[in-house]
Amino acid sequence: MIDGIMKHDWTEPAAAAQHEAMPHDDPNHPHALLPPDPALRVKALETILTQKGLIDPAALDEIIDTYQNRIGPQNGARVVAKAWSDPEFKAALLADADPVLADLGYYGRQGEHMVVVENTPAQHNMVVCTLCSCYPWPLLGIPPGWYKSDAYRARAVREPRKVLADFGVSLPEDTAVRVWDSTAEVRYLVLPMQPEGTEGLSEEDLAALVTRDSMIGTGLAKAPGEAPA
């Protein structure tokens, strides 16, 4: 224990006295001073910060547009399709993903240190973040709700096969599962197995078979003509 490190500013006597006078359910945390309704709480904080010039609403719109419309699993799908089509690209991607992905423009926040792991008949890979919600944003965008859920975070490391069953995926008995718990700033992308009979398809047609879940490892790539998940 280092003196002072864990002492919060709001435990100072004056602040504590002020809190005691207020009917909040958690007197130690300032967030309770904001409206409890989540939408109103975000709106209130955004308004306060905007009034002080600390955030620019136009910048917020830009951030949202980026992750809603421009950065998403379509990026990862292009990488996978290229790896299926080009053995040299695939070898380079698996050996050292960062320069390969940077060349394609897929670098940035929450994707600074990428590792791509290949599914084979002998080994199926699956990615989780048990401690929070770490996810390769430049390749897959913002994680889906289930990836951030308590159930996935709790169970993926202990019973991945049962979790896969929740996704309708069943693996052969002789396929080992390797679960990657993203505990540092390294982000993992699964290279799913190429569906049989798709050799020779264009990268664009191949990319259409690559689902988000197949790049997290909770799904498999689609067969041609298979309905979208």
Partner: peptide
């Protein structure tokens, strides 16, 4: 908005 405010 929550994500964007946090990043900003």
């Amino acid at each position: 908005r929550a994500l964007a405010v946090t990043l900003a």
